[in-house]
Amino acid sequence: MNKTIFITGASSGIGFALCMKMIRKGFNVVGVARRVEKLAELNNHYSNHFLGVYADVTDIDSIKEAISLGIDKFGKIDILINNAGIGIIGPVGENSLEDWNTMIDVNVKGVMNVTNLLLPQLIQNKGHIITIDSIAAHEVFPGSVVYCASKHAAKAFTTGLEKELRGKVRVTKISPGYVNTEFKNHLKYKEYSDKMKASFENGLNPDTIADAIYFAINQDSNVAINEIMIRPFDNQE
């Protein structure tokens, strides 16, 4: 039976590239997102190997439902890719508390929610957890303080999983620099938007991140790739 991958934030950017990559590599894919209309084309064209369903990583009931539907269709889930994330960039004095909480809810609690609910499947199937954090999980940038804090927390959580689950579940952290995705369209403050937009537009292609993740997955059973940091060659932030 083909392995099944559960991908959060599947409707655009890295998540969508991952869905396409993994389907073409012969995996079954459960792609979850809040914008399910973006997944309709994949549902139509790859219905034997793809299931696109609604789930919000901050809504536990919706995650449970998506997991249940995935297992009903494919029998099991072997690999989790925590991809869903949000960045609201701007000075701490101008970001609202709501903005801060949104980033913590999605980037930290969201990763923990999905991981917790899928852990029994992943342990049973000697599976793999992959968390896409960011270069911001390793550094702190002005204008991104809470975003960086959320990514540091996701990194710490994933590092802890790797230590506790050795021999049971493989765990990998992927830390990209700038990637040319819709993220650049959600830079809330003009001062930072103007400064950073060109960096995103000249950043990595989402397919490059999908390739790195496939590399981590496609290893012998006695090999664990625990961490990959990947940046644009000419843009080292």
Results as ranks from 00 to 15, higher is better:
M1Y: 10
K3Y: 01
K3S: 09
T4H: 03
T4G: 00
I5K: 01
F6N: 05
T8Q: 10
A10T: 03
S11N: 10
S12R: 14
G13K: 06
G13L: 04
G15A: 10
A17S: 09
M20P: 00
M22P: 02
I23K: 05
G26T: 02
V29I: 01
V30G: 06
V30L: 02
V32T: 10
A33Q: 09
R34K: 11
R34N: 06
R34Y: 02
R34D: 04
E37H: 13
E37Q: 12
L39E: 07
L39M: 00
L42G: 06
N44G: 14
S47M: 09
S47V: 09
N48T: 13
G52A: 02
V57R: 06
D59L: 01
D59P: 01
I60W: 00
S62E: 07
A66G: 09
A66K: 08
I71H: 05
K73Q: 13
I77Q: 00
I79T: 03
I79A: 00
I79W: 00
L80S: 01
I81Q: 03
N82Y: 04
G85F: 09
I86P: 11
G87Y: 03
P91D: 10
P91C: 01
V92K: 00
G93E: 14
E94T: 07
E94Y: 01
N95M: 12
S96L: 01
N101M: 14
N101I: 10
M103I: 11
M103H: 10
N107H: 03
V108I: 14
M112G: 07
N116R: 15
L117G: 07
L118T: 08
L118G: 12
L119T: 08
P120D: 08
P120K: 08
Q121S: 12
L122M: 12
K126M: 11
I129Q: 07
I135T: 13
H138I: 11
V140E: 12
V140D: 10
P142N: 08
P142D: 11
P142F: 04
G143L: 04
A149V: 05
K151D: 04
A153L: 01
K155M: 08
A156K: 09
L161K: 01
L161Q: 02
K163S: 11
E164V: 02
E164N: 05
L165E: 01
L165P: 05
R166Y: 09
V169D: 11
T172V: 09
T172G: 10
K173T: 15
I174D: 04
S175Y: 02
G177S: 03
V179Q: 03
N180G: 11
N180E: 06
T181A: 02
F183Y: 11
K184M: 14
L187I: 15
L187Y: 07
K188R: 07
Y189P: 01
Y189E: 06
Y192T: 01
Y192F: 13
S193I: 05
D194Q: 06
D194R: 04
D194C: 02
K195T: 10
M196V: 13
K197S: 15
E201Q: 13
E201C: 05
L204I: 05
N205M: 12
D207Y: 08
I209C: 06
I209F: 05
I209S: 05
D211L: 10
D211F: 02
A212M: 04
A212K: 00
A212E: 00
Y214P: 08
F215V: 04
A216N: 06
I217A: 07
I217E: 02
Q219H: 07
A224K: 14
N226E: 15
I228T: 03
M229A: 15
M229K: 15
I230D: 12
F233T: 15
F233E: 13
Q236P: 14
